[in-house]
Amino acid sequence: MPRRSQGLPLAATVLALSIGAGLAVGKAMMAPPARRPPDSAPGRTARRSHFGGFQVVGRTVTIRAPRDQIYRMWRDPVRLPDFMEGLSSVEVDGDRITWVVQSPDGPFPVQTRLVEDRPGEALAWRSVEGANIEIEAKVQLRDAPGDRGTEVEAHIAWRPGMGIVGHWAAMLRGTDPAIRGKQDLKRLKMLLETGEIATSANRKAD
């Protein structure tokens, strides 16, 4: 009978399809995620990032100033506290540089060594053996498109002393390094582009 003979294969097909679908779903759940090409974004903007226990923050600003002028400011960093609010002073001794950072618990000296120096292009510093924090900072300079000046990309990687709890505690106290870093770069931009740092204060600080 045509009906019956058709009925069975139909049922078998439906069954097979549903099992197949089940298998496909199972396979999708078990298999590693589909391979995606790496995208063009900096690693620190990834939704999930792994830097081997390091915390990484970074930021790029475009400044209408030549690369060399910006390079010189970072190469001789004693003037950086003028615009970096988190920095109370910088001491330079050859290639050893001590950055005194303002932390919620008072001044916090970070001893580093200049580990990369490409004039007009890049500078990097790394904490020395025995420093009180493991940290690396890098500034990279690129010509911006058109006549927009220089793209300044700065990033800092450090191993959080107090782990994620310390990181959140710092954020709540307004010292989130990502925000502080971004703000400091904007102040650098103001200083280089306008010669001053904008304030709405109506009077000089006493």
Binding site: T194, G195, E196, A198, T199, A201, N202, R203, K204
Partner: peptide, 8 residues
């Protein structure tokens, strides 16, 4: 009264 704060 306000004061001069920045050079410009």
């Amino acid at each position: 009264d306000p004061q001069i704060v920045n050079p410009r």
